[in-house]
Design a protein around this nucleic acid. Structure first.
Lengths: 197, 197
DNA sequence: GACGAAAGTGACCGATCGTGCTCTTTCGCT
DNA sequence: AGCGAAAGAGCACGATCGGTCACTTTCGTC
């Protein structure tokens, strides 16, 4: 079943692109089918329902997010090098890989944060393990390691800057947003690394 | 035409509540009509089309945002008092006035930031004047006033913390998010107020 | 090259979408 | 009290929604 897998991947790709722009709920099967050059009924050979396709899309986006943002950073030394890589990867992931929509993880988070269900559960679980991994890197910024509360405060600001960048860049059209975000994050690292225990 | 205005306001209110949770595009006229106790065709005595209702909803949300977040702060002295009030109002506006959806301005921003059209234009314009007003308060933090670039960097972080709070509170279920956000913002004010010129 | 399974098509279903139409009820004013 | 206009109901429309089914084409394997 080689052919089927490739088609399934193309469907997910098309759906994810559209979802990142208009929101997952606004993606119709007709649009996806036309985009990928398939009949609408052909989609049902790869997914049992629209909801089934939805969670497949979210899972695929989260997988690619991990592969692009977090995994490459694991090759670097713990602490600051990894944190800098993760932050920079995240900005580039939004600006380059999703050039006409921005980071789909942010979009999906805001779309589903008030809607209970499998999509939100999936997002919450996967983003939770991501957060825990980043928290560990923040703790490794100092020796002895940072208190957990301090790491959490730092992670809060890190993730905030990611959202802020997306808003400044895409909503307000600030082409300098990436530079501003990087500067804010570097200052955060400086502060966190040398703060009094 | 007193009665009509009241009904129109109730329609907008219901539509805004739903839009804050599911997104504006996912709000159907049927749902709104049922919610407000009206027939679907009755809606068209107050709006010429669904798009017309959309911009009315966005305008109303932005008006209430201004009235709740920015206007009360104008009674305080410029600079830090106003900034603290604006930030605190913003957090409370999201947590209290929109208890089961979070701040609708954030939601609308992310939903429409990649979709050109009148809604995005309206958001961009109104949020732009809000930003300019807050920038002036940041500049008033010091005498002589802050350089514009520094004020912009500070505003970027302020708005970032608002987004971060929404994500932590609603997506990740962190009930302590408001405290974390306030602490981060206070530290930002401290830094900005005393940084070297 | 044949054959079974996987992949994909086209027609169709009931429900719901936004919107126009005509008609009735209700309000605001003199 | 009466009258014109505003507010709203009811119905119907074409389009589109997610989804099913019977059928055909294509693929992977022996």
């Amino acid at each position: 079943m080689r052919k089927g897998d490739a088609t399934r991947a193309r469907i997910i790709e098309a759906a994810a692109r559209q979802a990142a722009i208009r929101g997952l709920a606004a993606v119709s099967l007709n649009d996806v089918a036309e985009d990928v050059g398939l009949s609408k009924s052909g989609l049902f050979k790869h997914f049992t329902s629209k909801d089934d396709m939805h969670i497949a899309v979210v899972e695929a986006v989260l997988d690619r997010f991990r592969d692009f943002v977090r995994t490459p950073a694991q090759a670097l030394p713990p602490g600051r090098p990894r944190l800098e890589a993760i932050f920079d990867n995240w900005l580039r992931w939004g600006e380059n890989e999703w050039a006409d929509s921005g980071c789909p993880v942010n979009q999906l988070s805001i779309e589903f944060d008030d809607q209970p269900g499998p999509v939100r559960d999936l997002l919450r679980a996967r983003l939770g393990t991501f957060r825990d991994a980043v928290l560990a890197e923040f703790q490794a910024l100092r020796d002895p390691p940072l208190a957990k509360a301090e790491a959490q405060a730092a992670y809060f600001q890190m993730k905030s800057f990611i959202f802020g960048h997306s808003d400044a860049r895409r909503m307000m059209g600030d082409t300098d947003a990436a530079r501003t975000a990087r500067a804010a994050f570097q200052a955060l690292l400086d502060r966190t690394a040398k703060a009094a225990a």
